[in-house]
Amino acid sequence: MALSVTDIACARGPAQVLAGVTFSVAAGEALILRGPNGAGKTTLLRTLAGLTPPLSGTIEHADGAIAYAAHADGLKTQLSVAENLTFWAGVFGAPSITAALDAFDLHDLASRRAGELSAGQKRRLSLARLLVTGRPIWCLDEPTVSLDAGNTARFAAAVEAHLATGGSAIIATHIDLGLPTARTLDITPFISRRLRQDDPFADALT
């Protein structure tokens, strides 16, 4: 198993949002997270990425295996497309950004400042960052926001290529990505709305 999650509870701020979440993702497998707005998809992904520690339960994966892509693009608007990617390639120790530029058709934009890009182009640049991380497990939060149909297909192809090389992906999305092998996990049954038990004010507020 590339990633295995056992009975975790996730919190956002003072509130527990999800409880009893259990699933696993194998190498070469994609998992689509579904759930209504506010269900806790982002919270779950932030927990998997290690930004928020789980309240309880265990998350098992290899060290440094997870590449996280959030709602925000995380781009520096004053830097060019190539400079943005080169920076992340340096952080993750990737040798070259050419493959990433290829996958999201960014060659023509490489010398443009990120601040001059359209929302969809920024999204493509942000997704291209995943390829320079070289990490096997992608945790993606609504990756296709502002992408047109052609670029959504391009993104799906990038995910397929990633899976084919033994990677895995956990993707929170509301649209059909057209990934034939993807499993779907509806997180609605795990929704658990209450104050976290380790909150010092929990007693006072109940």
Partner: peptide, 13 residues
């Protein structure tokens, strides 16, 4: 604000 702090926090750095 632009989200890169989250990404840096999940990087090897």
């Amino acid at each position: 604000e632009d989200g890169s702090l989250d990404l840096l926090a999940t990087s090897p750095l």
